[in-house]
């Protein structure tokens, strides 16, 4: 029998997949991998922009890193602040969105309207818009941010003012730190709700994917709703908890202060080397957080198969 030359049909069929992913591979190599290497190289160099449009690179060793970590006035402080607030916000957002998703999954009148309202933050997720909305919210709810504090006390105070309570608590002899945390938590409320839009959607989809027969069995066996939640709902959505935590960390990081710092260093002070070094440092921190958190969570995740 004559042997067929070349590849079999199934093998050729498999290789067709390469045509499909080819555009992505080109993009990955050209724009991602290349630039990732470049970013690391930049962070070790001094970069000068030439008049003609090009730029010249001179090797500077770890000078940029040394400057960012040892000499820069506020880089380390803002780095720790940003990472700290990410670590505080992630559990708050995750549990809040799971909680809201469970509520929205129940059947009640006007559910469509409530859902439409809850996804509005997804529509308005923009840095420029959010800054303005935040200041509006503070005026409306009486919450305070440090910068707006002077403004609001100067002008006519309307509505419920958090500072009134803060003052009362201070008279009560509460420690200042506790009051600051409470006031901070109240003014973060909107931030948490606002950052939860996509996560609520993901949890909602997960909740609807749980087979109703599981709940039926639990009901027949006489499980309480508390037991049902911890034995059925929670394990079934746990893979999505991992997804959501990862998404939340990336989302919070991309909006965080530290990215802004690197951006201004690179594009306003035109110190590209230092900017790249700052980006690399903060990205490494985020990747470390991501690695640790997903390792810890994935140990507890329940996979159905």
């Amino acid at each position: 029998m004559k042997k067929k030359k070349g590849l079999s049909l199934t093998q050729r069929q498999k290789l067709m997949g390469l045509y499909f992913v080819a555009p992505w591979v080109i993009g990955f190599l050209l724009f991602f991998a290349y630039n990732l290497v470049e970013a690391v190289v930049f962070s070790f160099s001094k970069i000068k922009i030439n008049d003609g449009g090009g730029f010249s690179i001179t090797w500077a060793g770890i000078e940029n890193y040394r400057y960012a970590l040892r000499e820069s006035a506020d880089f380390v402080r803002r780095l720790t602040e940003s990472m700290g607030s990410i670590l505080i916000d992630v559990p708050l957002i995750t549990f809040f969105s799971l909680f809201i998703a469970i509520l929205l999954n129940r059947k009640f009148k006007g559910r469509a309207l409530v859902r439409a309202i809850f996804f509005l933050p997804v529509i308005m997720a923009s840095a420029a818009i959010n800054d303005t909305l935040n200041s509006n919210l503070e005026a409306l709810m009486g919450g305070m941010s440090n910068t707006a504090a002077a403004q609001v006390t100067d002008t006519t105070a309307t509505g419920l003012n958090a500072m009134v309570f803060a003052g009362a608590l201070m008279d009560f002899g509460m420690p200042n730190q506790v009051i600051e945390y409470l006031v901070g938590a109240v003014s973060r409320l909107y931030e948490i709700i606002r950052s939860s839009g996509v996560q609520i959607i993901i949890f909602l989809a997960a909740l609807q994917a749980i087979s109703p027969s599981l709940y039926e069995v639990a009901q027949i066996e006489g499980a309480t709703s508390y037991e049902t939640f911890w034995k059925i709902t929670f394990p079934m959505v746990s893979p999505l908890i991992l997804t959501n935590v990862v998404y939340t960390i990336i989302d919070l990081y991309s909006q965080s202060d530290i990215v802004e710092v690197a951006h201004t260093t690179a594009f306003t002070s035109l110190d590209f080397g230092l900017g790249a070094a700052m980006s690399v440092i903060s990205s490494l921190c985020v990747c470390a957080i991501l690695g640790i958190v997903s390792f810890l969570i994935s140990k507890k995740v329940f996979y159905q198969s």
């Binding site: 970013a39 990081y253 903060s282």
Partner: peptide
């Protein structure tokens, strides 16, 4: 996972 901000300068 790697934020775009890392590679914004290059």
């Amino acid at each position: 996972v790697v934020p775009v901000q890392t590679i914004m300068v290059p």
